[in-house]
Design a protein around this nucleic acid. Structure first.
Lengths: 141, 141
DNA sequence: GTTCCTGCAAAAGCTTTGCAGAAGA
DNA sequence: TCTTCTGCAAAGCTTTTGCAGGAAC
């Protein structure tokens, strides 16, 4: 395996996952492109690098990486599961015009409610929808 | 139309929607059962009252009610659109064990980030996942 | 050599659509 | 009467599954 892939090889290995060319490339892609692609976008982008890559491999790989906690699933809109490289918690903003997704920092410790006393909270998600700065200024122009 | 339905008849009418038995019953169901049903649950529950109700009517009606701003779509988990009667903003908690969804109050004004300066925010969503009190105590028992 | 991954095709779910008949205004 | 809603069936999408061949260990 090439040297630049050592990092991802190690990550997969530490999770007990078998190393494959496809898995390394998909993980590398998510790590280097901090966008929030759907499975379909992963497939079309990766086809340029791995022409024989199949839809089912993409789905199986993404699910395996989510199970291994290397990726996170985003549930911003129905009918489109999006994936992101697992970094520190942050909020997501989706522009209703251009469809872009923006990350933003957020103090998640503020998010609490007396109603949830005694509940075990495993995951906190925050997402906004609206129109981003760029689309707003494009409107004025 | 019966007297108890006047409220929902009026709501539909104010939105310029045609009144139908199905629409009134579905709207009434969502308003009285503050659960967060999927389209499928709406269908199976409503079949008891409206035996001829069809899947497509449920989908069309729910979409129409969302468009009219009488219902809100919940995007908590992929592959299941849930609906709720449109009340004041609140957070949602989904128990990973029993699948129940709990509402909780939240001060949404706290949720902001410098990164979103200049953005137009139309909608704020907060949802948690974890294990609810009941399931936790059931585990101990 | 064994295990498990990949990729093709088919299946499975959920949601939408087209259309004829029925209900509402 | 005219509009539009309902309900059936079929189509559309995304995601999952089964299986044979192939890659990784």
């Amino acid at each position: 395996m090439e040297k630049t892939h050592e990092k991802y090889t190690k990550m997969l290995d530490e999770k007990g996952m078998k190393i494959s060319h496809q898995r390394i490339k998909i993980l590398e892609y998510l790590a280097n492109n901090l966008c929030h692609p759907t499975a379909d976008k992963v497939l079309s982008d990766m086809k340029k690098v791995l022409p024989t890559l199949s839809k089912s491999t993409v789905y199986k790989t993404l699910n395996a990486l989510v199970d291994a906690n290397l990726l996170k699933e985003l549930t911003i809109e129905d009918n489109e599961i999006r994936y992101e490289y697992n970094l520190v918690d942050h909020g997501h903003f989706k522009c209703e015009k251009c469809g872009n997704i923006y990350d933003f920092d957020l103090d998640f410790s503020m998010l609490q409610s007396d109603k949830l006393n005694g509940f075990k909270i495993n995951e906190k998600n925050v997402f906004f929808k609206g129109v981003c700065k760029d689309c707003l200024s494009a409107d004025k122009a």
